[in-house]
Nucleic acid binder design. Sequence first.
DNA 1: CACTGTATAGACCGATCGGTCTATTATTTT
DNA 2: AAAATAATAGACCGATCGGTCTATACAGTG
Lengths: 195, 195
Amino acid sequence: MNKAERTKQFIIEKAAPIINRKGMAGTSISDIMEATQMAKGGIYGNFESKEEICALSLDYLLERIDTTLNHRLADHTACKDKLFELLEFYKSQATAENAFGCPMLNFGVEADDTNPEIKQQISKAIAATQARMSKLVKKGIETGEFKKGFDAETFSIKAFCMIEGAMWATRMTGNSKQVRVVTDLLKKEITDHLK
Amino acid sequence: MNKAERTKQFIIEKAAPIINRKGMAGTSISDIMEATQMAKGGIYGNFESKEEICALSLDYLLERIDTTLNHRLADHTACKDKLFELLEFYKSQATAENAFGCPMLNFGVEADDTNPEIKQQISKAIAATQARMSKLVKKGIETGEFKKGFDAETFSIKAFCMIEGAMWATRMTGNSKQVRVVTDLLKKEITDHLK
DNA sequence: CACTGTATAGACCGATCGGTCTATTATTTT
DNA sequence: AAAATAATAGACCGATCGGTCTATACAGTG
């Protein structure tokens, strides 16, 4: 990584959490200047536009979640344990002090009706997230861990929607009950499908 | 309603859908000027600030959903039918051409971490929405329509999170499957709890 | 119809927006 | 170390932001 690439990465790492928190329209270049302690020319020497910074920030946030999740799931062998770990991860994200909501939801809600490119990024991320869960269920069936009646696709859609909705509701109401009820229900459903 | 009140209402009715679509930060006064065909002085003669317009727009959107839902539910007597109608309403909102996502979600995501007043409005709306479902389940148990084991609070939390998540996911992916799967699952759960 | 008070238009304000450009400073390469 | 190249600072740009103010137009009342 040469200087330019390192600087680019540095700016994205500083900008991404701010954009996730304040939104794309709500974040100004001066916010990013302040966070990076760089002048405007320094920023624009590395990016074409604010839009590009937003898109790359979203990529960065999504990738970070993906790798974190990959590492955590690798600690377990049983599909049930992997699914449980996944649920715990999202639950912790909803209540964590330093987390400011799911980037998919945050960027997606703003991009809807205004930014087709970002919307496309989100659409892919949703598919990938649901596919991860679906694969875990399917693999669990293959290995004989889960009953054959466990519908992978239905479960992954349901679980995804419930988790996203619950993380948001918990943040809004300041009440962790929402996410707790949801993760408990999903855990029970997984357990019920164990052989 | 005198002139001032009528004008105020008129502005909110024009502004609310725009703000719901483009966001609070993403909507400018000039957008509202264009939609209302009024000059800046005309707008600011009726409101103190853009913030006030946003807050009142949110109130308007929430109330409109509330009254629409009240009317629709009044068409049915059985709690099961009321719950089904409620699910159908949300489903139609997710796929409707003229709807631009749930105002609770749209405003809430943006207000999180930046606008405590709006966040408070959303928090109350979430509680009211869940309470509506919870009451329908409880009433159904009282009237002997539902089995006693139907947990009203758990169901309302789960259903709410699933619906919000699914409406959003359907809008993002452009695939109505998300909301279809979710409403079907919830309908099945309701049916399963019929005596 | 005239009078009076309210409501609106639109010029105007300073601040800030995203973005550009050049002089200067770092970093590489020789 | 010197020369060549890449990267940054910050003044600057026009456009637009939210918001104010006053002259004018309108509505409601006698």
